[in-house]
Design a protein around this nucleic acid. Structure first.
Length: 117
RNA sequence: UGGGUCGGCAAGACGGUCGCGUCGUCCGAGUGAUCGGAUGCCGAGGAACGUCCGGGCUCCGCAGGGCAGGACGGUGGGUAACGCCCACCCGGGGUAACCCGCGAGACAGUGCCACAGAAAGCAGACCGCCGUAGGCUCGCCUGCGGUAAGGGUGAAACGGUGGGGUAAGAGCCCACCAGCGGCCGCGGUGACGCGGUCGGCUCGGCAAACCUCGUCCGGAGCAAGGUCAGACAGGAAGCUAUGGGGCGGCCCGUCCCGCUUCCGGGUGGACCGCUGGAGGGUCACGGUGACGUGACUCCGAGAGAGAUGGCCGUCCAGCCGGUGUCGCGAAAGCGCCCGGUCAACAGAACCCGGCGUAUCAGCCGGCCCGCUCG
RNA sequence: GGAGACGUCGCAUAGUCCGGUCGAGUGCACCACCCUGCUAAGGUGGAGUCCCCGUAAGGGGACCGCGGGUUCAAAUCCCGCCGUCUCCG
């Protein structure tokens, strides 16, 4: 799971990342990334709307996304970015490896895109 | 033993490990709010759900009057309250245990009852039946009168059966039965039940149609509401004191005040409310029961973009599979052993009481009916 | 947290207020035929779905989101659910 330092908690931060970040859409998720000063702790936020499903299903999706992001920090060395992952309707039915591959690939591409930009 | 019916229990346990959240303690950074790290305790439900009812709590000055509107509807009780629960009554279903019922009022009024049928609610009469007058081609026809037994329609046709009676018939009369109403007696707190007696013989159904009667209901909701801290800048136009607002459909009453629109500017923090309550458990007593009273005892989520999960091991119970030269048995099967599985519905956001709905695999008990054995 | 609206044949809708004529109408789509050299358009007719019986022709029953109830009778009235959508803060 993610520590509090790696979380986006204010509505303003969400708004900035979603509006000004680089956007990558996949089958079950839409990810936004915005670079901060390099070396800073990466921060993640999640948007899971009620269209995804019931409270239990939304909780499951959110926990899976948090686990994926933790893996990206520990193994992938992601740093210096703010990321918001929006779960689309249908993500509750996605298998764990599918969801994981999708988010990690999107993160990888977003990192390069953000650095190049 | 098969089937049924009613009620209850439970929502795996223990240990390890990796993580998440609140709080406490310690360490570090910072003037400080706070942040980081370590560590310890604790951390979702029986439905937390749907939001269908009822309350607590808070504010609307008081929670006031009337109209409108809404809810409820056998009787008696339980409760803070209820549309909930308990007991009983009545009606209906079932062989039974038991289940179902928005179960007041249809002589206060209005309205509706399709099709069929002569006629659908007030009585009337199509085919008939009977009497009588007339006609006649002597099968019958027409007029007037009396009938409602028979026919057919319908969900429903103004009591049923039998007898007397009659021109034919009819509660016209009689007996029994059904139903309605009055009175009396007995039982019950009561709804009501049982018995007796008398009466006219007898005038459907629908209020989950409008409605009438009785009882109850002021409005909003913890983003209620309050405390502290902090910020700023006003301007223009229009409308009015029989005006506007608190006030929610309206009126009264009452309190407060200039109001509306547009342009521009500021804030968008913290804390309280916030969880110990109509609370749970055990025992005793009262009560048929819902429930109440008393004693003892137990309470350890409280977030604020929102925390409970993953993995491993052992085990309880069940289920599935295997068959072992293990036990019982004639066999089916049961026990023991081995392997596998180990679950459903679903996530607190102010808090309670109900109702409704979802729920894998299970367990326990009462009662009823059938079969079999003793 | 609060407040609504709508579910009818493959699709879109009428009927619901005020029960019976509903064996559920209309349009599109579908099938057959006519018209045309062919197609479109137009015209005529047919046909909803599921279950049961029957070799077949045909016959019977059920279905207006689901389950109950009221009524002689329910798509329509009442109660409880399910689903979809919308609005307010």
């Amino acid at each position: 799971m993610l520590a509090k330092a790696n979380r986006i908690t204010s509505a303003d931060d969400y708004r900035v990342v979603v509006r000004k970040g680089v956007k990558v859409a996949r089958a079950h998720t839409v990810s936004y990334v915005r670079s901060r000063e390099s070396g800073a702790a990466p921060r993640f936020g999640f948007i899971v709307s009620k269209k995804v499903g019931t409270a239990v299903q939304r909780n499951l999706v959110r926990r899976r996304l948090k686990a994926i992001c933790l893996e990206a920090i520990v193994d992938g060395g992601v740093h210096g970015v703010d990321v918001v992952v929006r779960a689309l309707p249908g993500s509750a039915d996605a298998e764990w490896p599918v969801l994981r591959a999708e988010v990690l690939a999107a993160l990888d591409r977003q990192m390069r895109g953000a650095v190049n930009a």
